[in-house]
């Protein structure tokens, strides 16, 4: 039949075209700037310039003495750590209900938990600040972590719900009919089988918290400066070349974390 075949060709063509365009856009706007930053960070000169006149690691060594930047980086890591820990715990618990129940209340809760992805984080950050002040509190690290959890939990939720929906329900019935308690079923059957999904969700969550600006902008107190905001201020005020070196480190750190996640998730997949 000629007609369906022509149809199929169009589909294949449009798929290839979209895929190709997306790849090109990603190369131009994602990979190229990353390479530019990495090269710029290796400059031997005193100013941010591309291409650099000469190559050296001097700005990376300069980071060793950048106390303020180090403190900001440490703050960001600690906040991202707590955010991830809490998001994974809450996200897993919520997704267990989300994956199994079809009730409209659970559907509504799902939409509510996912809404931070749609709501502008800037508006949320501002509103949260006003709200906290109204309650008589001032911005602090616990509030900052709470704010991060709200905007980062969707990442855990989505990957975990997806992993749970892949889980064969008869495995749970098998565990229970063999005398397993709900806790044993969760620990010995559910958790090992959704671990890859959970790991990738945790990775996304950690990165989303680590480079979150809009929530941190409003909820961080003066003493807790986070890395992305500190870097922005350095660029804004004195075009500090160390920011390029810091960006370079972040890129490398992200790549390593990404590879580890892939390795862990991949390995667990192999174990199935």
């Amino acid at each position: 039949m000629p007609a369906p075949k022509a149809n199929l060709d169009w589909e294949a063509l449009s798929l290839r075209l979209t895929f190709g365009i997306l790849t090109i856009v990603a190369m131009i706007f994602l990979v190229a700037p990353t390479i530019v930053v990495l090269i710029t960070s290796l400059t031997s000169s005193e100013s941010l310039r591309f291409p650099p006149p000469g190559l050296s690691l001097r700005w990376y060594f300069a980071l060793i003495d950048a106390d303020q930047m180090q403190r900001a980086a440490w703050n960001s890591l600690v906040i991202a750590f707590w955010t991830t820990l809490i998001s994974v715990a809450l996200g897993t618990a919520a997704s267990l209900a989300l994956a199994r129940s079809r009730s409209k209340w659970v559907r509504a809760a799902d939409l509510l938990f996912m809404s931070p992805l749609l709501l502008p984080a800037l508006a949320f950050g501002f509103a949260a600040l006003v709200y906290i002040n109204k309650l008589g509190f001032s911005p602090s690290v616990p509030f900052l972590v709470a704010g991060h959890v709200i905007v980062c939990v969707p990442f855990v939720l989505r990957t975990t719900v997806a992993a749970l929906s892949q889980l064969d329900p008869s495995l749970l019935d098998a565990s229970i009919s063999l005398g397993g308690t709900p806790w044993m079923t969760f620990r010995r059957v559910i958790l090992p089988l959704i671990a890859p999904g959970l790991a990738s969700g945790a990775f996304l969550c950690f990165m989303a918290s680590f480079d979150n600006v809009p929530v941190s902008l409003f909820l961080a107190d003066e003493r807790t400066e986070v890395l992305p905001i500190h870097l922005w201020q350095q660029i804004d005020t004195n075009l500090d070349v160390r920011t390029a070196a810091a960006s370079g480190l972040i890129v490398i750190f992200t790549l390593i974390l990404m590879l580890i996640t892939e390795r862990v998730a991949g390995l667990t997949q192999q174990m199935r």
Partner: peptide
């Protein structure tokens, strides 16, 4: 009695062996 207390063994159609 809940299914975990009832002492009923089930062989499922897809066997439901724990894959990991």
């Amino acid at each position: 009695l809940s299914p975990s207390q009832r002492g009923v063994g089930i062989v499922f159609q897809n066997y439901a062996l724990f894959p990991h």
